[in-house]
Simulated assay, not measured.
Amino acid sequence: MRKQFTLILGGARSGKSSYAEAQAAALDGGVLYVATAEAWDEEMAARIAAHRSQRPATWRTLEAPRQIGAAIAAALTPDVACVVVDCITLLASNVLLSLPEKSDEATAANALLAEIDALLAAYAQSNATWFVVSNEVGLGIVPAYPLGRHYRDALGRANQRLAAAADRVVFMVAGLPMTIKS
């Protein structure tokens, strides 16, 4: 199978990660699982531990909350046939929370798009099939506070950039995949 880039979008608990993991498990070769979550509290630490325990022991995990492109590029080895990035949503949170408190929308968008460009550059240099997971956050209400609006807009732009570069885009609803680009 030639390498392919698949973006998997959907809402919270729509089945995005399970779908990405099932797709990766169906391929031959090593899997590099790129986790972007940071354990800011006990509940998040428990979620991370649960996710980690559910993955096959043969998969290699790379924790990359920021500077994801460089981290993946450094971790790619010839045995990596598949990369799963879970998820851009938390990467966006990490990037925006690392900015100065009064950053504007353009600063937020540019910081996240720089991460996305670095991720796409790592994909271009790899021979692996990639599954990238991200939430679609543009279907809800307009956030009531500036950071929420910056987050929604930056993630929306990041998802657009990823979708444009992707070979396939899958939208998950209630655990059901709908291919919207192939």
Rank of each mutant, 00 (worst) to 15 (best):
T58Y: 03
T58W: 01
W59E: 11
W59C: 08
W59V: 07
R60E: 15
L62R: 09
L62H: 11
A64N: 06
P65T: 07
P65R: 12
P65D: 09
P65N: 09
R66W: 00
R66S: 10
R66C: 04
Q67V: 01
I68K: 06
I68F: 03
G69N: 03
A71K: 14
A71Y: 00
I72D: 03
I72E: 01
A73E: 11
A73M: 06
A73H: 08
A73K: 04
A74C: 07
A74Q: 11
A75Q: 05
A75T: 03
A75C: 05
L76N: 04
L76T: 02
T77N: 09
T77E: 15
T77K: 14
D79P: 15
D79H: 08
D79L: 10
V80I: 15
A81I: 09
C82P: 07
C82M: 00
C82R: 04
C82G: 09
V83D: 03
V84P: 00
V85K: 10
V85P: 03
D86V: 03
C87Q: 11
C87W: 02
C87G: 08
C87E: 09
I88Q: 09
I88D: 07
I88M: 15
I88H: 06
T89Y: 02
T89G: 10
T89K: 05
L91A: 10
A92E: 02
N94W: 00
V95C: 09
V95T: 08
V95Q: 08
L96A: 08
L96C: 06
L97A: 12
L97V: 02
L97D: 14
S98C: 10
S98T: 03
L99T: 04
L99R: 04
L99G: 10
L99H: 05
P100D: 14
P100T: 05
E101W: 02
E101P: 01
E101L: 06
K102P: 11
S103A: 15
D104K: 07
D104V: 09
E105K: 12
A106S: 14
A106C: 05
A106N: 13
A106I: 07
T107H: 05
A108Y: 00
A111L: 12
L112Q: 08
L113P: 11
L113Y: 01
A114S: 13
E115W: 00
E115P: 04
E115H: 03
E115T: 07
I116T: 14
I116Y: 02
D117H: 09
D117T: 12
